[in-house]
Computed example of a mutant assay.
Amino acid sequence: MINDMEYIITNSLLLFFVIGCLLDVESAIAICGVLVFCCRYFRIEPIPEERLRELGFVPVGVPSTASSDGKGGVETENKAFVIAHRGGGADSPENTIEAIKQAAKNGADGVEVDLEFTKDGVAVLIHDDTVDRTTDGKGRITELTYSHVLTLNASNNHPHQDQFKITRIPTLEECIKVCIRRKLKLFIDCKSTDSKKTSDVLISMFEKYPKLHNLAVVCSFYPNVIYSLRRRNPYILTALTHRHRVLSRKVDGTERNKEPWKRLIAPIFDAILEWSHMTWLWYFCGTSFFLCHKANISQHLVERLSNRGIRLVVWTVNNPDEKTYFGQHLKCYLISDSMDPNYKEEATT
């Protein structure tokens, strides 16, 4: 496993070379020195490996003696760790209590849900910016009050909507209560860029429900959200989330930005962000997990993260052959839309 000194020396030399090509040697030395000092001084220590194993987050394919409640059990080889994407959106209405309960019944090790806020600041579960796709309502979630959100049917557009009664968009707290009762791992994907609002809500939930420290992993595409949260509570498990060209392209490949100037600079920031993920963000934030789109996974990335003691979580893996490849061959944690082993449909992510 890589140690601090190896990390500092390797990345300092790389940074010095890049800056030295642009500026004079004295400036490169000064800038590198300041950046390395800040990174080392302000970094947050990661959760110890022993603690991760105690909680049941054992690397795939190695002996495990931890039970789902973190108290230990019979030693067995750890199998693929499968997380229900949005609670298992292919099996039940996504990001709902019904989906979480169904995922638990279907044998999921954990659920991944999406955190956003209503106009009046209530933390709710929803993936999109708007409620249009998943409910019978319309509008941006941040422009709707919680009382209005409660009137919407979250199963309205689901393929199996006839199997469900009217389903509501739940609050984060409702989700937490269900996961604690079922001892289900909970991956909370923070959608808001407001690091203060997000960390305020999450800190209050971890204080109110201390068992969350044994079950929950807070994830985000926004490193500032993760860093802000861990500065306030360094005992919370966290993950950085990433895919190629996330700032310039949507998952389907279409342009994310309408303005010409944003289209011009977004690829530059994409390159900087990806370089940062591979070189220093994981170290600075002290994260224990890295969530990555399946199209961006390589053996090199797996080995690189493994050497850093970071669990790689691949999304969204639906095809049985892909589950075998990523889970058994590359030994990654999996995020899937369905707990049905025969499910093959490629869902949008």
Rank of each mutant, 00 (worst) to 15 (best):
M1S: 08
M1T: 11
I2L: 07
V18S: 10
I19H: 02
G20T: 06
L22F: 05
L23E: 04
V25D: 06
V25M: 14
I31K: 05
V34T: 12
F42W: 13
F42A: 03
I44L: 13
P46R: 01
P46L: 02
E54V: 13
E54H: 11
V60Y: 00
D69W: 02
T76I: 08
E77Y: 10
A80W: 05
V82N: 07
A84N: 03
A90E: 00
P93C: 12
K101N: 01
K101M: 13
Q102I: 02
N106A: 13
V111Y: 09
E112Y: 00
L115V: 09
F117G: 09
T118C: 05
A123D: 11
L125V: 07
H127A: 02
D128T: 09
D129A: 13
V131S: 00
R133P: 03
T134P: 10
I141R: 00
I141E: 01
E143F: 07
T145P: 04
Y146D: 04
H148W: 14
P159T: 14
P159F: 07
H160C: 12
Q163A: 15
K165E: 12
I169N: 08
P170G: 01
E174N: 06
V178R: 00
I188Y: 02
I188P: 00
K191H: 12
K196H: 03
K197S: 06
S199Q: 00
Y209W: 04
K211Q: 05
Y222H: 11
S228L: 13
N233L: 08
I236E: 01
L240W: 01
L247N: 05
K250Y: 14
T254I: 10
K262S: 13
L264F: 14
P267D: 02
D270A: 07
I272G: 04
F289C: 06
L291R: 04
I297R: 02
L301D: 01
L305Q: 04
L305M: 15
S306N: 14
N307H: 11
W315M: 05
T316F: 06
V317W: 01
P320W: 04
K323Y: 15
G327Y: 01
Q328D: 14
I335T: 14
T348D: 04
T349L: 11
